[in-house]
Computed example of a mutant assay.
Amino acid sequence: MSRKSQYPSFNVMNEKDEWDGHTQLIVSSRLESSVKFQFLTEHEVEMLRSICSLLVDDALPDALEYVISHIDRTLYSSPGEGQRKVGVPAAPEYIRQGLAAFDRSSQLKYSATFAKLSATEQKQLIQDISVGRDHPAEVWNGIPQKDLFNKLMQLTVESYCSYPRVWSDIGYAGPAYPRGYVRTQLGQLDPWEAKAEHEA
């Protein structure tokens, strides 16, 4: 997040002793550094670092590493997809083809790979792809641009929003089980929930 958190001194991991053991293991594992990618190439990782950073407006390395590691694990293990449009390839093939198309388009427009573009140029290209209007069409070789953007957005947001540092930034105190919420009326907070320290 590019703007300041309203909860600068809050750390969700201070609440971990209130979670059951299984939850502690899952959430704590998200903070473990892992730089070994099994599906993505080094070049694809570099591209995704730029794309994901722009999608969530956050350039902090720890969050981006977690997001990209999640994408890599998802594509490597290929657990299947609940929904996929007819004619759209499976996610591993789709993302790889899409990232290559990102680069082809970037080279044609700016004579540089996507990762080397300015943030303004990257944003414009992502914006064009998000509405299916990046040209020339042959660069995309039948890859539906909007569907690619939506898939990248889904993979990015689902991992970013499960990262503990992001929870701290937005004041989310983590899983309530088994402790549970008591004060449930509008404007009420349980003692263990984050309190805003200044206006956003």
Rank of each mutant, 00 (worst) to 15 (best):
Q188F: 04
P136A: 13
R30F: 02
Q38K: 15
S168R: 01
M47D: 05
K146C: 10
M1P: 10
W140H: 04
E81W: 07
D62Q: 08
S33N: 11
D190I: 04
Y160N: 00
A173M: 02
I143Y: 05
S29Y: 02
S130Y: 07
K85L: 14
H70D: 11
A196N: 05
A137G: 07
S50P: 05
G132N: 05
A91S: 12
P92N: 07
D62C: 04
G132E: 05
V139A: 08
A194P: 03
A173N: 01
H70V: 07
Y181N: 14
V157N: 03
R104S: 09
L186G: 07
E18I: 05
S130F: 06
W19P: 02
M1L: 14
A119R: 15
N150Y: 10
H198M: 06
V35R: 07
S9N: 13
L152K: 01
S77R: 10
S111V: 10
Y160F: 07
I170C: 04
M13K: 05
Q124P: 06
Y110G: 04
A176Q: 11
D147A: 13
H70E: 11
V27R: 00
D169H: 04
P175K: 05
A119F: 12
R49M: 08
N141I: 05
A200Y: 12
V157H: 04
A112F: 07
L64E: 00
G142A: 13
E199Y: 13
L54C: 09
I95R: 01
A137Q: 12
S34W: 03
V27G: 00
I71N: 01
D169E: 12
L148G: 02
V182I: 11
L155E: 01
Y7S: 00
H70P: 03
W167Q: 01
Y160Q: 01
S130L: 08
Q188A: 09
Y163F: 09
M13Q: 07
H22T: 13
R165K: 15
Y66G: 01
Y76N: 14
S9G: 07
Y110I: 06
E15P: 00
I143F: 06
I26K: 10
A59C: 12
V86T: 14
Q127E: 12
D134H: 10
P61D: 06
V35C: 07
S159V: 00
S33C: 09
D169L: 03
I129C: 05
I68D: 00
